[in-house]
Design a protein around this nucleic acid. Structure first.
Ligand SMILES: [Zn+2]
Ligand SMILES: [Zn+2]
Ligand SMILES: [Zn+2]
Ligand SMILES: [Zn+2]
Lengths: 132, 132
DNA sequence: CTCCGATTGAGAGTCAGTCTCAATCTACCG
DNA sequence: CGGTAGATTGAGACTGACTCTCAATCGGAG
């Protein structure tokens, strides 16, 4: 109805999509820009930011708000889910919580809030990182 | 037991604490700096940032990571809880979710992650904002 | 009152991310 | 095919939030 009409598959966009597909953990825009550089693909930083933002808006990637105000992106499955991230190595696991979803709705109803969304992430240390 | 020894209750710190106590919703460092200015209290911006950060570390205030990378602070009750925030007016309600807490622990256990913490916030439109 | 480390603040610096706009690319058309 | 409108790109300027630096000041233990 409004946007999908215009989305050209350019070399840059393809490169970014590929870089995203090749990593399983969250990466910042700068990380992606660097790895593209490393791979020989010349893509402007602004383009990386723009593309990532667009993909996030389109729901093609998930965004993780880093504590330092920087965002990290990750190619994720399309259904609603959350993440369990290792604070040490960044390893990420997708998790779902039906109980959480219904709790959120109940809380919203109780307080008479509408159009409720939520952000939820779990952080810890994975088994591998723990043992040395 | 270890550090608390050095925390002088200066005019600036008192002013910031008071400003925080006077507001019930999340406020950015800049917001607080402005309101202090308005109130005639001259406090440097750097001091506001430093103090807020310290209070957050000490668990005296909760921090809400704004989507734009800015942090907002709020004087909160000390026990573990989450927030339901109005996207329109900022009205904030503290909420607790026993179900969520136990779900988080279970998920962590299932994936063998340790020292798990979580961030969870709910956003919506409050009743007042909805009706005009 | 004295002294010393804690605190402050003006201003420079950092850094992620955004904007500007001319050059470039693409899809589509005749 | 060449032509064209509109999408896309990228170098570099810019923004805005936040941190650092360091000399001047403060506060309270003795
Ligand atoms: Zn790990
Ligand atoms: Zn959810
Ligand atoms: Zn509201
Ligand atoms: Zn919780």
């Amino acid at each position: 109805m409004s946007e999908s009409s215009t989305l050209r598959p350019t070399r840059q966009r393809r490169a970014i999509t590929e870089a995203l597909a090749g990593a399983s953990d969250f990466q910042s825009a700068q990380d992606i820009h660097d790895s593209l550089r490393q791979a020989g693909e010349k893509v402007g930083l602004a383009t990386v930011y723009r593309t990532l933002q667009a993909m996030a808006d389109a729901g093609e990637v998930d965004v993780l708000q880093g504590s330092g105000g920087e965002s990290a992106y990750r190619r994720c499955s399309t259904h609603h889910h959350h993440h369990l991230v290792c604070r040490s190595c960044g390893r990420t696991v997708e998790v779902t919580g039906p109980a959480v979803e219904s709790w959120a709705e109940a809380v919203a109803r109780d307080h008479d809030f509408a159009e409720v969304s939520h952000s939820l992430e779990l952080f810890g240390i994975c088994a591998d990182c723990r043992q040395q």
